[in-house]
Design a protein around this nucleic acid. Sequence first.
DNA 1: AACATAACTTACGAATGGTAAGTTTATAAA
DNA 2: TTTATAAACTTACCATTCGTAAGTTATGTT
Lengths: 111, 111
Amino acid sequence: MDCNHKLKTDSKHICSNYHEAIEFIGRRWMGMVIYSLMDGPKRFSELAEEINGISDRLLTERLNELIKEELVSKTFLEDSSKKVEYALTERGMSLKKVIEAILAWIAENEK
Amino acid sequence: MDCNHKLKTDSKHICSNYHEAIEFIGRRWMGMVIYSLMDGPKRFSELAEEINGISDRLLTERLNELIKEELVSKTFLEDSSKKVEYALTERGMSLKKVIEAILAWIAENEK
DNA sequence: AACATAACTTACGAATGGTAAGTTTATAAA
DNA sequence: TTTATAAACTTACCATTCGTAAGTTATGTT
């Protein structure tokens, strides 16, 4: 295991080292948003409904952060209505193993 | 994958479901503290020195949270001086796979 | 024309984190 | 033997992040 937590130089994404990555995916509701998008693209309202307890404000904020990190893409649907769709990018999808590791850890530690 | 994020009932630990677990290990400096303890027990001052940028206040707070979750144990060393030692419990050690998954994700996504 | 829904945005008090300085007990140095 | 240094915290205070609720804009429905 190598953890270059001093590195903060010219990297494109926040999540380019362990320190920043774990705190990024651990921000409030972030894990739930990522998890929720794992089974396919969803609209804002679908996410809001599915993730019990999140507010519009935080959902917007987390989605924008995910977009900035290129873990999620945003598409405006062209059926002449004001609808959007959020989807995990390949980079975002590859977080699946991290999520699975966390779920495995929880299962393992149930008394 | 099953994520029971509605569950908040009678569980002993905060980290008994995905939602709480990911936000717990993602709190500020938490990942670094866990990482730092992965290679063996350490004293407060050793952790403070090793984890570049953390303050005494936050280190104390994170360690206490880890102890409450039974991921870390605290031992007062008996050489008649006021020294303590923090070590990962077995439960804490089993987080190694999560950390490795995050490190793998970062490596995988380097351009 | 009036109301509803989607996808935000704004405002504001509460919780969490950052920075720095202060405590307490214990060994080390003068 | 007083003086200083170090370990392991605590306390105080300001800044950032979060939670709650209400407002906005554009389309869709009755």
